[in-house]
Design a protein around this nucleic acid. Sequence first.
DNA 1: ATAATTCCTCAACCTTGGTTGAGGTCAATA
DNA 2: TATTGACCTCAACCAAGGTTGAGGAATTAT
Lengths: 156, 156
Amino acid sequence: MCSMPTAPKSPADPLSIGQLAKRTGVSVSALRFYEDKGLIDPGRNAGGQRRFKRADVRRVSFILIAQQLGLSLGEIAQALKSLPNGRTPTQSDWAAISEGLLQRLDRQIDEMTRMRKSLTSCIGCGCLSLKACRLYNPQDRLSELGAGPHFGVTPD
Amino acid sequence: MCSMPTAPKSPADPLSIGQLAKRTGVSVSALRFYEDKGLIDPGRNAGGQRRFKRADVRRVSFILIAQQLGLSLGEIAQALKSLPNGRTPTQSDWAAISEGLLQRLDRQIDEMTRMRKSLTSCIGCGCLSLKACRLYNPQDRLSELGAGPHFGVTPD
DNA sequence: ATAATTCCTCAACCTTGGTTGAGGTCAATA
DNA sequence: TATTGACCTCAACCAAGGTTGAGGAATTAT
């Protein structure tokens, strides 16, 4: 026969949720949660079970990377909308969307570097008032790194 | 008389929670929450109302700064334990504890810079697999920046 | 054919970092 | 003195990012 002995899973083979979980290291419950939030959109087989395309491995990888960079799932969902719908994303589609991450990362590094400068000067003078930080950094507040309360310390 | 006309609030004047809120920009409810978590420990007046020392303004500033750097309230509580108990912290006490923040910030900048390198190479090859990232960055995962799921992408 | 897995949905729960409101007390002001 | 604030506690709620478990259906292995 022409068919290979141990079915070398063609690139079209769909993945079950458990298989995707294993490949990505993301738990099954988290994958369902991502679907619920619109980050992934698996098809279903006749029995109603989720069937993922192999390209979804990359999609989940993107989610993980973006999370590392501090994007919320909502922001990630937004970013993923820039991918072609219908067609399976190509490498250059992924490269394009990843550029956005890189820019964000650069902004973050920049903010942290400014923060470092401020903190150094705060430590230097012992004031710990963020007066200096605010001079350097008027209303940015590294807010990408966490919600954090409103800022506006009026020191002693 | 020797006393000044409009009572130039001596450094010993205690602050009410509302006054502290105004000085720090932190809401009254958040201040109560911080007390609950052990980050601040105001005394009480005869009527049971919180009375903060002026040094608490600095303490709250520290909390805000540390939050910006991604520390959880629990971690901040830990850090604050290094302050002298009993005595009001001096400028050099604050400088010492802030050194820890600076080191953490440096680690973060370092991690982000490595992440940038990885991401650049991922974008370059279009793989988006984090294979390269993991090479550069074996098990660190910028985890300081958020809980984030377990990492272990096995690409397509 | 049957047993063992895996999967399904839905609801409840968890942690962080708070906010909001009810019901009641304290303190400053007219 | 009366009355506004400002304050008190306690409980419930919110959003994010999930986990856990119940009860049941589908799939896979023997």
